[in-house]
Design a protein around this nucleic acid. Sequence first.
DNA 1: CTTATAACGTTAAATATTTAACCATAAACA
DNA 2: TGTTTATGGTTAAATATTTAACGTTATAAG
Lengths: 213, 213
Amino acid sequence: MGNKGTALEVIPGAVVRRLPRYLTQTQYLRQQGVEWVSSASLAEALGLTSSTVRQDLSYIDFKGVAKRGYGTGGLEKVLARTLGVDRDVRCVLVGAGNLGRALALHEEFVRQGFKIMGVFDNHPSVVGKKIGRFVIKGMNEMADFVREQQVGIGIVSVPHAAAQAVADQLVAAGARGLLNLTTAHVHAPDTVSVVDARILASLRELAYAVKDI
Amino acid sequence: MGNKGTALEVIPGAVVRRLPRYLTQTQYLRQQGVEWVSSASLAEALGLTSSTVRQDLSYIDFKGVAKRGYGTGGLEKVLARTLGVDRDVRCVLVGAGNLGRALALHEEFVRQGFKIMGVFDNHPSVVGKKIGRFVIKGMNEMADFVREQQVGIGIVSVPHAAAQAVADQLVAAGARGLLNLTTAHVHAPDTVSVVDARILASLRELAYAVKDI
DNA sequence: CTTATAACGTTAAATATTTAACCATAAACA
DNA sequence: TGTTTATGGTTAAATATTTAACGTTATAAG
């Protein structure tokens, strides 16, 4: 494959899920002053084969150099551009429970370009309260806010039963991607991507691996 | 395939990752008073095909009934047993930052059988402080604690740079599974499973989907 | 009791993902 | 300046996953 000029090709899902990890590792190396990284060393760091790494990187518009590897500076830049994290990505957070609060306070996301524009919750007793620099807004304000602020991503951190309704509202308001942190499955039209980060499901998956101790 | 009596067969990773979701949905249905669920309806709820559902459930020791589907009560029980969540699973949480705090306070995990036995952190200023019912312990106490309490799962919620060292300590102390919430990749021997729930990586994956708004 | 059929279970085909193999190239060095 | 070689790029094979197809079976209805 390989990319001629602009990225017209569709990158397989499995590859897209690894690109953020290459970015993290490349960023880390560059910050350590490392200028070159080989496919073998990336593979070792991320638990992959060098073949997978080379094939994955063939999807992005960046060439390695024989006998050296990939320049960390350039690779970081192109990975960020490919993923769309070379500029701020605007998010809203819905659900100001423990998890939502933790995410709102997690400065790392902001450093990485994910800008939480607003925090929303349905519960009257928390609306108006503050989480760090955010004043929690009511759900009735969400749709207009998403439209006006041109929010791309909605982070869904509400109870199971509320997840789909919140997702629907976010989609209707124009969100193009949803991060689903709930235990529920969230349906969305093809034009909207949903990525799941279900911690309970991950724990249960682990329980299977751990069960015959 | 199909399981003759006890579970001797290896269940493919892709299937294991879906079993928790079947469990969540089945639990939900049973709590709603629904007694039977078809592969088509499970598929619809979880965004899969009915064929995938039937094939997945063929790996567990449970049979559906023609013209009815799967009995929710029985299915829930067998899924829980297969995953190993039909009894308490003992965990420790390492890293008492915002995310760790949120998880420690999240009662849902306890309700689902994941019992956090202790919370550990390296930072002297937080050791001794409380998070809910937990008193944060220092890392020096961790290894003995994991051994004595027969902890199976370690939840790693520390900064990137500390992740591997914490993982190594957990493995050395006898943990059999790690939930990695950090941006780092964590290496572990084959006897220890690592499941990742990387929120930043998920956001970056979404950014790719969202980027050409 | 017999028949029709909704749903499962299973096989096999299709697709997606990962890995191995090998060619091409640019750097390092004699 | 030529030679060696480490490393990327690419193709194709191997593997894993998903889906379709269809026979089987137990239920429900007549």
